[in-house]
Amino acid sequence: MGFVAIWAYVTLAVFVVGCLYKAIKYATMPMHLRWELYPVAHEKGKVEYGGSYFEEVDWWTKPREVSKLGEFKTIAEEVLTLKQVHERNPGLWLPSLMFHYGLYVLFTLGVLLVVGAVPGVRGLPGLARLGGGRVLMALAAFGLTLATLGCVGLLARRLSRADLRRSSTPADFLHLWMLLAVFLASWASFFWADRHLAVAASFVQGLVTFRPVAGLPGWFGAEVVLLGIFLAYLPWSHMTHFFAKYFTWHSVRWDDAPNMFGKTYEQRVKKLLMRPISWSAPHIKGDGRKTWADVATKGGDS
């Protein structure tokens, strides 16, 4: 097995494990106190102006109407149009939109290559054999064009706009430079090694079937190596916002479920109140043995 294939396996594994680790970490954190922020997208009939069930007299006696469709619409609008950036940060919107759409297209291309590489997939008669087809080539060119222009645009904005430059961390620049390197290597591979993605298709098929192909063109190898570095790095960066948004929105901003209706809350909270506390300030004097229940029910008056 060649280095490139091993590299692909290792970095993909790091990517998947890293993302899973982070997602599981967020998902298994203790239940937090409520911290919702309006508008809450699932408030049926009230979301347009940001209203909530708290607007009703005796709200706890009335059935809650939660619109999953409302949540879906809000997330879809944000993902597909970058609404907030468009409205509040218009200078960044076009490059950001191009960049994200470029990634969506390239991700779709990747999915097609993987699906096409699965042996025995019916109805998709070996997308690997479509390596010379126009669809994959067009998707690659289109996706790479959008992503590269978007990436360059974002870098240019970050470098030229004083507020963005000042508030960017070294990591913010590193991410964009890494991505640009991946895109440039992909262009080089596209032009000089794999215009019709035949190499990519067979490489992916080799990975999927655990029969990696050897003798890859140099530019294609460079593309895979750089992409691998980026993917292995991604879970440890802020770029996991592509899935973290589920938690920030669904589990925090929109988590307005009242205790009245959540029968599981009481047992969960009782356990949380038995957790030890070690905050050291004089009005708490947590020693790691006292529990939250201990400190919350006495003291605080001196």
Partner: peptide, 18 residues
């Protein structure tokens, strides 16, 4: 435990888009 989830999500995901 009261705010850890919200806090870590915020600490981990700012892209500094302003």
């Amino acid at each position: 435990w009261t705010f850890r989830q919200q806090l870590e999500l915020t600490l981990d995901h700012c892209t500094h888009c302003q």
